[in-house]
Amino acid sequence: MPDAILQAKGVTAGYVPDLPILKDVSITARAGQVTLIIGPNGAGKSTLIKAIAGLVQMSAGQIAFDGGDITGIRPDQLAQHGISYVPQTDNIFRSLTIRQNLDLALRGARGDAAATLARLFDQFPALAAKHRDKAGTLSGGQRQFLAIAMALASAPKLILMDEPSAGLSPKAAQEVLEHARALTEQGVSILLVEQNVNQALRLADHCYILAEGRNQVDGSAADLLGDSIVGEIYLGGRRVGAA
């Protein structure tokens, strides 16, 4: 089994003090793998990613990343630690051009920015062709690719992705998810939150299921794919620690 790249232990967090959305959640993401988090609406999946990214305050728990402690990190320092975060919606700057979006993401990046930009345009030719256009004019799928390209700009070890397929056509969703999978071959680890359970389970390595802010089950994605427990948790038939 590959080494853990990110370990969240006992995370309790929420938007309002005394009203935690996440209760004592622990997950581990392994290097070079796609780690998937699924669960019904309101399970706290996005909140978990935001807590890791420092956008939501944690009242308890630790986050370890790549041998260091990043609990309570400031969001603007994520990239310096080697983490990128792709939010679910509004994940690009609509009023900036595609090139300006990328330049902004490249600003703090190590290494040769021009070379990185050229590489990103190679990887996403559709973006290269439209680099002078306002990002707001892009289609849903292209926006996700721009957001992923921005995430890659800082050469991260781990990308946190919050429902990259949300709002996309099935075809575009498949493309985006496959691209996410392909990133692991470049040595990037992915922590993925998805609603598109079946598609996501097919390309993930390991999967955690959350419900009502708590860990329910976890296991290899291949095992969970055919398991009836997934459906049971979604339908509310079976819960661990449900209130």
Binding site: L55, F93, L96, L104, R107
Partner: peptide
């Protein structure tokens, strides 16, 4: 760009450094 980015979406600007 960073000024415009913060004006449009402060938390996205933050995660972009």
């Amino acid at each position: 760009y960073s000024l415009r980015a913060v004006a449009e979406n402060p938390s996205l600007a933050q995660v972009n450094g």
